[in-house]
Every structure is written in structure tokens, then in C-alpha cells.
């Protein structure tokens, strides 16, 4: 399908359907996300080596409130795939199982830097996490939520390509032990495997144009909301 080129009198043209291959479109989403991440205050400070333990403490506290729900929307998505999407259902169920205990890793890091379990558990989602979590549950609740692959692309990509880098940088700047940055480093290792599985789905030819558009849109929303989650630390 190609874009229509007719122009209205005002000169405005509504966005045309993007016909480029899905991987190329997702690469663009990723590149845009990376630019936005570079402007997130805590990540800018991290890159400059200008963070304190309090910053790391705050970041873990904020991330946990969303991570603790991470496997729930994946599990809900799994339950909404019919038998025609059996492979996606299998993959989502397996992935939900893997993610299910992730917040415990984060919790151990949090305790290891002197955080209080009581405070961590009493925490609430910041406004970015609320938006992200709400959006993901909404996507996962529809029938055959193929769009969720876009969310996975962003979130697993962050885990595989960014979390490890952040974890190592925090460790480097603050002089942290491995057992204090386990969550971020582990993510880098585990999510590399997950993204491998997902590449298979994203490059298969059974995704029609609507599915591809839904995946890209979902990826773009999740990218924006993830940046919001990282920006709006402690804003609840």
C-alpha cells in the first residue's frame, strides 16, 4: 500500500501509512528512544559520572513499582491469544514466568545498598509508571494483542542494551559491588535471549500491515511512557 499524496487546501496532510519493512520502522523507534533517553536528567547525570547513591536508590525505588507488575500484563496478554496465535501465547507464558521473579532481584539490590524493604514495598508508581502500566494492561486486555510485541521490543531492548550499561556505570561511579547492581546486569544478559526469540516473530511474514502498524504504535507509546517513568522520579 502506498501513501496518498492529495493535499488539502490548508496544506495539511494526515499521516500516510508507512510501508517500510517492520524492522526498519522499529529501528527508527529505537533511535528516537535513545535520543530521548539521553535527555533524561538522571541518565544524563549518570553519563557525566555525577550521580550519588541516593540517585541509584531513587531509581530502583521507582522502577520496582512498575517491575513488580511486569509479568502481570504479559500473563494477561498470553491469556488473550487464541489458538491461531498459539506460538505467541506460548512465548508470552514462558516470558511471564521468567519475569515473574525479577522484582526480587531488584529488591535484593535495594536492600544491599541499605534500602528498607518496608519503604520499597510501601512505594507507589510514579506518574510515568502509572501511565505505562495502565497502557500495557489496556493493550494486553484486547483479543490477540499482537501490538504488545511493540512493547516487548522496547522494554526487552532497554533491558538488553541499556540496563547493563546503566548498572555498570552506577557500579563504576559509586563503587558498587556486583550484588548491588544485579537487577540491571542480569537484565542485560536475560533480555538478550528474549529479544532473540522476539526477532523471530517480528520478522515472520504473518504480520499483516495492520498488525505491523499496531506494533510500531505500541512501541512508540511505550518508549515515550518509559522515558516519562524515568523522568518523573518520585512524582506520584
Amino acid at each position: 500500500m502506498t501513501a496518498t499524496t492529495s493535499t488539502s487546501l490548508s496544506g495539511y496532510a494526515p499521516p500516510a501509512r508507512d510501508t517500510r519493512p517492520l524492522p526498519e520502522r522499529l529501528d527508527e523507534v529505537w533511535a528516537d528512544l535513545e535520543r530521548r533517553l539521553a535527555d533524561v536528567p538522571i541518565l544524563r547525570a549518570l553519563a557525566a559520572g555525577d550521580v550519588t547513591l541516593e540517585d541509584y536508590h531513587r531509581l530502583l525505588h521507582n522502577l520496582r513499582q512498575q517491575v513488580v507488575d511486569g509479568s502481570l500484563w504479559i500473563a494477561r496478554a498470553a491469556s488473550n491469544f487464541d489458538v491461531e496465535h498459539f506460538d505467541l501465547r506460548s512465548a508470552a507464558m514462558a516470558h511471564a514466568q521468567e519475569e515473574h521473579r525479577d522484582h526480587l532481584l531488584l529488591q535484593r539490590d535495594y536492600l544491599a545498598i541499605g534500602g528498607s524493604l518496608q519503604e520499597l514495598r510501601a512505594g507507589r508508581k510514579n506518574i510515568g509508571s502509572q501511565a505505562l502500566s495502565g497502557y500495557m494492561f489496556s493493550i494486553a486486555s484486547g483479543p490477540n494483542p499482537v501490538a504488545a510485541l511493540g512493547a516487548m521490543f522496547v522494554i526487552e531492548g532497554l533491558g538488553a542494551q541499556k540496563a547493563g550499561e546503566w548498572g555498570r556505570r552506577f557500579a563504576d561511579v559509586l563503587g558498587l559491588a556486583d550484588s548491588q547492581v544485579h537487577f540491571m546486569i542480569y537484565h542485560a544478559e536475560a533480555d538478550v535471549e528474549h529479544t532473540g526469540t522476539m526477532e523471530g516473530f517480528l520478522t515472520s511474514d504473518r504480520l499483516d500491515a495492520d498488525a505491523q502498524d499496531a506494533i510500531v504504535s505500541c512501541a512508540r507509546v511505550v518508549a515515550r511512557l518509559y522515558v516519562m517513568q524515568l523522568t518523573e522520579l518520585d512524582e506520584i
Binding site: 547525570a45 550519588t52 522520579l233
Partner: peptide
């Protein structure tokens, strides 16, 4: 003591 170059909550 470390002297942060920015206020601790400047990114809050």
C-alpha cells in the same frame, strides 16, 4: 565528602 555538582533533586 563528595561534592555533587548539581542539587540532588534537580532531575526530580
Amino acid at each position: 565528602p563528595r561534592t555533587p555538582r548539581r542539587s540532588p533533586r534537580s532531575h526530580g
